[in-house]
Write a protein that binds this DNA or RNA. Structure first.
Length: 376
RNA sequence: GUGGCCAUAGUUCAGUUGGUUAGAAUAUCGGUUUGUGGUACCGAGGGUCGUGGGUUCGAGCCCCAUUGGCCACC
């Protein structure tokens, strides 16, 4: 993997660049649609490429390991072959799922014991095991196995957890470096900064992560319920320490406004379930704010879904029709809304990139944040 | 025509020997969702209990009449 920065903004820490992988080039800043179980829910690959213009999508170690299982994915020839996505892929390590899904989980120095949400079966993830699993899934970018601390989180717990996440990282790096990709292309490992909302822990973690000298770095443990100001403050502290010549990935973020503000702080990569999950519940993002398409006021609004939208669905479907589909729980409703939201997110980061290159990012960003901060 | 059963929220139904402000589901309306457990969660509005009398301190419940619906028999 390579990372080249072509432009940096003079009035913020924003930068435009490209991440080059064996499955193609990603122009940053970028938003990565989440495809947990090997599919971006309700969206075809062709729509992802041609309409949404996605450049990289996510998969999830936890979910894919449980179903369909590693045997299937390995025999398919890796996840790219299995799901037909020939562009870059990133897999999350399952650290977040161990935190968010398993009511019954036990973390020890060795790893995490957890029960499957599908059938209650018992499993164990170690840092080494998670590296092996991600080798088998075969994503271009794979993530370290970490503990995502909850919010709120006591300082002492955050400190102990961070130390263990760092020890786990050393084990991840060791196993990753001792093994190689199974399908003839290279993979890269991103470590993850933790430290909850405590600046000193975040700084210490960023320094430790920077020392590992990987090809890119991630920030985790944010957007878990803390105030947005805390999230921005932690992001800023960490970005000041993580090397500028490597991509920075802010995990799980966020709203369109979160993304623009974080780009201004020096973040290059994002992923978030909001555009797809909210789409299924009828919430649409636009340049002028958020729309709840289920609201009665759209019942007889026969104007296009989004006059400023870049996607096919924005022009051919009306608000009243999508309201009907979502109300009726028709599958097409989830599909149209998901395509709209993802196309908007990709437009947003693409336009941010254009503005950075043009040297006008800061003013544009401030205007967009103001404009999007409302409900239609 | 005779007998029986039924009538409670937009809809489908609970509602104790008669006892505080008649409940639920669903639908409607509004909100929430941040490294996705694929239709979730939270909240709100909505009923002169078919109608009219009666008994009672007190009636959705008991009695009478009446209207509408369903069933059986002639």
């Amino acid at each position: 993997m390579k990372f080249n920065i072509s432009h940096t903004d003079k009035n913020s820490k924003a930068r435009a660049g490209e991440v080059i992988t064996d499955h193609g080039t990603i122009q940053t800043p970028i938003f990565m649609p989440v495809g947990t179980a090997g599919t971006v829910k309700a969206v075809h690959q062709r729509e992802l490429k041609e309409d949404i213009k996605a450049q990289i999508i996510l998969g999830n170690t936890y979910h894919l390991y449980l179903r369909p299982g590693l045997e299937v994915i390995e025999q398919a020839g890796g996840l790219h072959k299995f799901n037909g996505w020939d562009k870059p892929l990133l897999t999350d390590s399952g650290g977040y799922q161990v935190y968010s899904l398993s009511a019954q989980r036990k973390l020890t120095e060795e790893g995490a014991k957890f029960t499957s949400h599908i059938d209650g079966s018992k499993h164990f993830f170690s840092p080494e095991g998670v590296m092996d699993i991600q080798r088998t899934i075969g994503a271009d970018i794979i993530m370290a196995f970490d503990e995502c601390t909850p919010y709120p989180c006591e300082y002492d717990y955050a400190k102990k957890s961070l130390a263990m996440t760092h020890r786990w990282l050393k084990r991840c790096c060791k196993r990753f470096d001792e093994t190689e990709g199974k399908y003839g292309y290279s993979q890269t490992l991103f470590p993850i900064v933790q430290g909850s909302v405590y600046p000193d822990l975040r700084m210490k973690s960023a320094e430790f992560i920077a020392e590992q000298n990987r090809e890119g770095n991630a920030i985790g443990g944010l957007s878990v319920g803390e105030p947005a100001e805390d999230m921005y403050a932690m992001t800023e502290v960490v970005c000041n320490i993580l090397p500028a010549d490597k991509p920075r990935y802010l995990m799980g973020v966020g709203t369109p406004i979160n993304i623009l503000e974080s780009i201004a702080l020096g973040i290059d990569m994002f992923d978030c379930v909001l555009p797809t999950r909210n789409a299924r519940h009828g919430l649409l993002y636009t340049q002028n704010g958020m729309i709840n398409i289920k609201n009665e006021k759209w019942k007889k609004d026969f104007s296009p879904l989004d006059e400023n939208g870049t996607a096919y669905v924005d022009k051919v479907y009306t608000k009243a029709y999508l309201r009907h589909l979502v109300h009726s729980q028709e599958l097409l409703g989830a599909q149209i809304a998901s395509i709209h939201n993802l196309a908007f997110y990709l437009w947003l980061v693409g336009e941010a990139r254009n503005q950075i290159i043009a040297g006008t990012f800061r003013g544009w960003k401030d205007k967009m944040v103001k404009q999007m901060n409302c409900r239609l």
